[in-house]
Structure formats: structure tokens, C-alpha cells
Simulated assay, not measured.
Amino acid sequence: MIPDVAIAEIRVHLPAVADEVVAAIIAEVPSYDDAFSGPMGETIRTAVQIALGGFLSLAGGSQGDDPRTPAAPAVEGAYQLGRGEARSGRTTDALLSAYRIGARVSWREMSMHAVQSGLSAETLVSFAELVFAYIDELSAASVAGHTDELATSGRVRQRLLERISHHLLTGSPQETVRSAAERAGWPVPTTLTAVILTESQVRPVLAEVSPQTLQAEGPGLDDAALLLVPDAHGRRRAALLRTLRDRGAVAGPARPWLEARASYERALRTRTLGLDGDTDTHLVQLVLTSDGDALADLRAQVLAPLAELRPAVVEKLTETLRAWLLHQGRREGVAEALFVHPQTVRYRMGQLRELYGDRLDDPETVLALTVALGAPER
């Protein structure tokens, strides 16, 4: 323990020591310049003085505790300081720098007064050990507070952001969605684009897109992740698609942000069809498969003339008819698409005309056949 006479000598100078600590921190840690100005500066000076006073009480053995261990109030104060620093946006680097400077200056000033009070060299060495052990305990408490605050605030903000995406995807009233965005401090974009991708691709994609991107849980989406990317419309869509290339992701259309659900539903339908990439490149198939039962009935209806033929013949004539429709009757184009000789196309189309008769020249029949056969049967 430190002799009472030395403790008393140092205690007299504590206000000056606290001022020296604060001045050194301001001079050496630029991010604390504003923090120590005005009323906050006086509060911190008082806190420094109280912490040093608590140390002196421990060092003098007045509380009967290990002098290397700060008392509970000092630890709690350091913990709350760490939380406050996190809320102020300062890092633990700045905080630990302040502690190191505080330890150095405190030791310099207090040891000077201790020597003046007649403290022996041996006791002075022990005193130094106590000072730095005490500061280490306080800095550890502050780091814990800083870490806990970031974790807590991060979880709270994440929950608020999740509420936004939940409201967007479940059709909540617009005022509810706007209120959720305001509570989360989320800057409202012009558009949102739904992106469905595997969980393993979420982090790489998030590193490339807007930091305001929402991570969401899409209704009916069990084995993949959903991102709602802000303002990826116009020229920015190309950048998003480049980011998603070769990731097996599906990008819905950009929609006004309050209509993000429409983007998600199209992306989900595209994925359900086994497709990926840009949904804009799959519009025909999306339209043709919007009502699967109706499409199946239409196929059966327009292909009824082939019903009595053998399956192998039906398959060949159906693919020929589809190619003929898509190539607008150009025999060479049909032959190239089917990898057959033009004469084969001529023969097959002769069979089809016998089966359909004049209906192949009827615009309504051609339209029905085009819709029914416009996309390959899945």
C-alpha cells in the first residue's frame, strides 16, 4: 500500500492532474477536440478526477480491496463511457489512445508529487504498476461498453429495417411503411429491386450494392435469401446485373419503392420456373406460364388435330409447327432451327395442312397456336 502522506499529497493536486490529462488527450487525439468543449468537457474532467480519486483510495488501502482492481462505480463509469463513445461514432482506437495518454500523464503527475512526499524508489515502482493495472481495467470496461453498444444498436436497427421489408412485402398501408422507414432512419429511395439469391452469395453481393439495401424474408421463400436493392434502375441496373452475374441470382424489375412486392413476386415466379438472371429477359415465358392450367388446356385444344397420331409423330409435327410459327413460315429458317433438310420441313408442313386444313391461314388459330407453342413445354 502507498503511505497515507503520499496519498494526501497527491490528492491535493488531483484537479490539476485531471486538467493535465484532459489537455493531453485533446492535444494528441484530434477526435476528442469537440467532445471536451463546453459542458461535456467539464463533465469529463470531473469523471477523470473521480476515477483518479478512486484509485488513490484503493492504493491507500482505505477500502481493503486489491488496489489493481477498480471499484464497481469506476468500472460502471468506464463501461458507460464506452457506450457513449460508440453512440458518438468514435472508435475504440480513439478511446484506447485516450486511456494510454491518461495513464502516462497521470503517472507522470502523480509520481512527481509522490516523490516530493518522500516515497521510496521501491514503493514508487509498485505505485507505477498499480497505476497502469488500474487503467487497464478501466479501458477494458470501456471497450466492453463500446462493443455492447454497437451490438445493441446494430440489432435494434436491423429489427427496424426488417420491419420495413416486412411491411413492404405483406401489403401494409403506405403510411405504415413510411412510418417504419422514418423510425429506422432509412433514406427512402425512388425504386427497389428484389434480388433472390443463395445465402452464400449475400455477403459478396452486399459488398457491391447500396449500403441501404434491405435484407428481407420473402413470403414463400424458404431456401434462399432476398435483398431489396435501392435505386438500381435505369443505367444502374446494368451495374447490378454485372454484380449478380454467375451467382445464380434472380433480379426482379425496378419498381417504385412502395411497390417492391411486385418486384419480389416476379422474381419469385422466375425462380420457380427454374430461371435466373434478369427477369426482363424472361417476360414471354412469364406471361405464357402465368396460368399453367389455362396454358395446358390451350395446348390440348390447338393440338387436338394431332391427338390420334403416334407420340413420336406428334412430337415431330409439334416442334415443326412451333418453328414454322416463330419463323413466320420461312422454310430455310425452320429447317435450320430443327437441323433438318428443307424438304423434310415441306413434307411435315404438308401433313399439318392436311390435319388443320384452312385453319392454319386463320389469324385467330395462328394466334392461339403461337401462344400455346410460343415457349417450349416444361
Rank of each mutant, 00 (worst) to 15 (best):
L244W: 09
D291G: 08
D297C: 07
A249K: 03
L244M: 11
Q285T: 15
L303I: 03
L275C: 04
A262R: 11
L288A: 15
S290F: 11
T289A: 07
A294H: 15
Q301W: 10
D278W: 01
V284Q: 12
L286K: 00
G292L: 14
L258T: 13
D297S: 15
L288Q: 13
R266E: 14
R255F: 05
A262N: 09
P256L: 10
T281L: 15
V302Y: 10
T279E: 09
R299N: 05
G248F: 05
Q301L: 14
R266G: 00
T281R: 14
V250Q: 04
L298G: 08
Q301G: 06
R269E: 12
D276V: 04
R269N: 07
Q301V: 08
A296G: 13
A262V: 09
P253Y: 12
L286W: 06
A249H: 06
D291H: 12
L298M: 14
A262Q: 12
R261W: 07
T272F: 10
Y264E: 06
H282I: 00
A262S: 15
V302G: 02
L295W: 10
E265F: 03
D297H: 15
V284Y: 09
L244C: 06
D293H: 15
R245G: 03
L268E: 09
R271T: 12
D278M: 01
L295F: 10
V284K: 07
E265P: 05
V250D: 00
A294T: 12
V287G: 14
D246A: 10
L295Y: 12
Q301F: 12
V302S: 01
P256T: 04
A260P: 04
T281V: 09
T289V: 02
L273W: 08
E265R: 11
A267G: 13
V284F: 11
A294K: 08
A267K: 01
S263N: 03
L258R: 08
V250K: 00
L283W: 11
P253V: 14
D291C: 06
L273T: 05
R247V: 02
Q285D: 11
D246K: 10
R261S: 06
Y264S: 02
V284H: 13
L298C: 07
T289I: 04
L258E: 13
R266Y: 04
D291I: 07
A260V: 02
L275T: 00
L273E: 04
V250R: 01
Q285R: 15
